[in-house]
Amino acid sequence: MKSKYTQPIGKIRDINGQCISLIGNDIDTDRIIPARFLKCVNFDSLGESVFEDDRKTLKGRHPFDLEENKNATILIVNSNFGCGSSREHAPQALMRWGIKAIIGESFADIFYSNCIAIGIPCFTLPKKSIEEIQNYCNNQFLFLEIDLKNSLAKSKDLNFNLEIKESSKKMFLSGEWDATSTLLENENLIVDKFNNLPYLKFNNKLL
């Protein structure tokens, strides 16, 4: 039985945990969470369905089904992870399974923004380093200590300089990654923009 996930709140500085490696390029959000699970009005029960079809196909041999990975929190992926649909259900499902951070060669744009919006930092590393981690994970447990401020990942045997967008890093360190309140601080500017956009003058109200 997996332990219950905790939703991140406030400042995110350190993430320490066991890595789970998932090999493959262009793993799309349909695979992370198939569309039939999008028939829901909240995200609560998505965790158990993450990678449902891939897991069924592999009959217990999928990384997300292996006993040794059940407490893993740091997902290691290859290139263009999370491509395809904009469904936030994908990172929500990963988070509810227990993932707290992702390290990969590259991420699709919308998936990346969705992760940042819900408090999952995504880091990039060169292909060679990812392969080194994935090979290591093949034979033994890898526990990483991620220091977000210095963009460092440390373990007993391996150390990496992680890359993360400066804007995302600042948000996590300051605890302001829940964008709504930050955006609302500029309420006057928003109203000014609304009043001054050319096309809002010549378009009749939609209602």
């Binding site: 904009s86 469904r87 936030e88 259900h89 990172p91 919308i110 923004s113 969705n114 919006a117 819900i118 967008k165 804007s167 964008a179 709504t180 930050t182 955006l183 609302l184 500029n186 309420e187 928003i190 609304f194």
Partner: peptide
Amino acid sequence: AFGIGTSQVRDVLATQTIAMN
């Protein structure tokens, strides 16, 4: 025009704006 996730849908509803690089 671009796709957004549900958290950004929330932001647009609440503020008519989003944070984006």
